[in-house]
Design a protein around this nucleic acid. Structure first.
Lengths: 134, 134
DNA sequence: TTAATTAGAGACATCAAGAGTCTTTAATAT
DNA sequence: ATATTAAAGACTCTTGATGTCTCTAATTAA
């Protein structure tokens, strides 16, 4: 069980955008080069992030992407959610006579989600910048 | 991102076996009927559990499976591990210039694993029995 | 010893989702 | 008008999950 590569790329992209100065637009080409991805593929990921309201896009020449102005304190969970959609660690619908482990798994999942919700992009970006300087 | 159906079936099977009286062998047919699965498919899952030392198998007439005598305090994580193998939520190898989020994700994963490690089959089995009586 | 029963092993088939490409369209700046 | 950039969607390829089927090995009961 692992998160998809797309989620991984999305998180990296979001951390990178967070380190940029406000209002500066970054094109998909630059973001793709950074991660050695094809621009068209990354573009699909970026569109999902935009639809979720985490970033804002501007088409046309000198266009690009930037972190959303309205959405504050974006967390890791927000990003994961935007890419993977609503997920549940366990699918209890496969059981016919009632799921014995539903409560246990739900508890574990809530716990993990709350931790990922507490991880904010800005904190990680600061950390990354400090590491880069040293 | 979710655990596989096989892991789900394995957990249910293990909880069921834990509720049985010691040393009693349960055949794959009974375990499969309980979950409405084909015996041959469940058989593959059971073999993995046996190889991981979580259950013991006896072939031949009147044979079947029972919870391991040697392995005590089996946890949810043990079962998940037996089926899914060694997993990691994030694959950092896809990044060329160093993974920015490795530490964050590792922390979240460790947290979740330690919670699943604290969930013991015996506790869940007791709970399930109490619910059945009421 | 033979027959019935049960687990184990492995080849095989099927399906869904992930991963990624390509092409066309729409919007924006110069 | 033209160049640039995001958006949308069809398409391909690969991988892994989910099973099924068949044969073999071990054990019990007669």
């Amino acid at each position: 069980m692992k998160y998809s590569n797309a989620t991984n790329y999305a998180l990296h992209t979001m951390v990178y955008l967070t380190t940029q100065q406000r209002e500066k637009l970054v094109g998909v080409q630059e973001l793709a080069d950074m991660q050695r991805l094809s621009p068209t593929y990354l573009s699909k990921i970026l569109t999902k992030l935009a639809k979720a309201g985490l970033i804002e896009s501007t088409p046309g020449a000198k266009g690009g992407y930037k972190i959303s102005r309205t959405k504050q304190d974006i967390s890791f969970l927000d990003v994961i959610h935007a890419i993977e959609g609503e997920t549940s660690l366990f699918d209890c619908t496969i059981h016919h006579e009632g799921c014995l482990i539903e409560n246990v798994m739900r508890e574990a999942e809530e716990n993990m989600k709350s931790e990922l919700q507490s991880k904010l992009l800005v904190d990680i970006a600061k950390e990354a910048e400090m590491n880069q300087k040293s």
